[in-house]
């Protein structure tokens, strides 16, 4: 479903202002627009779809509630990713404490489940590529995902991964190069 008719495609400022003033359509459009990148960012970091969806839900709600504090120094997307990263670190800290206390954490280990909704004829190839992606070191994987899947600038990638713009660029290119090498190896 697209809700873009009322709002310009590449500008979140109108949406943010509208949502801040209580416009439910603007709020819904903001969520629609950014849920994908947020979910993928968290999936790349946690490796678990359920956990990524839970964290994305919490981060989005927290961001929407905190809209009055959003000053617009960065893009809404960058701000949202920073909230998601804090949310994830906070959850990990809590889980760590629970582990130390010997309690069941409920966190699951990452698995190799295929992405839902892919065309059947390409599913095998897509699965193979996803498994290769999982082999990348986290920062390379994040740089490739954020740049390739969501078109983030290297500056945004750097902010989301807590690195420099140069490092984000290098991580992206190294990640792509490794993926190509692995893909070639697996074909031969």
């Amino acid at each position: 479903m697209t809700l873009t008719s009322r709002f310009p495609e590449d500008d979140d400022r109108i949406l943010v202002a509208g949502a801040r003033d209580g416009d439910a359509d603007a709020l819904a459009e903001l969520v629609q627009r950014h849920q994908g990148v947020l979910f993928r960012f968290l999936l790349a970091r946690t490796g678990d779809e359920d956990q990524a969806a839970d964290l994305a839900q919490d981060a989005l709600v927290k961001a929407l509630r905190s809209l009055p504090q959003f000053r617009g120094d960065s893009s809404f997307r960058t701000w949202l990713l920073a909230i998601a990263r804090n949310e994830m670190l906070g959850r990990h800290r809590k889980e760590g404490r629970r582990k130390e206390q010997g309690l069941e954490t409920g966190m699951e280990v990452a698995d190799d489940r295929p992405a839902p909704g892919q065309a059947l004829e390409t599913q095998g190839e897509v699965d193979r590529v996803r498994r290769l992606m999982d082999r990348l070191p986290e920062k390379q994987r994040l740089s490739v995902w954020l740049r390739l899947y969501d078109g983030l600038s290297f500056r945004e990638v750097a902010e989301a991964t807590d690195s420099t713009e140069g490092a984000a660029r290098v991580n992206y290119f190294h990640g792509i190069r490794k993926l190509r090498e692995w893909a070639d190896e697996s074909r031969t």
């Binding site: 994908g36 839902p116 190839e125 490739v144 390739l148 899947y149």
Partner: peptide
């Protein structure tokens, strides 16, 4: 090919 593996949110 890599893009085709893009995961979607629930």
């Amino acid at each position: 090919l890599l893009s085709a593996s893009r995961p979607s949110p629930p």
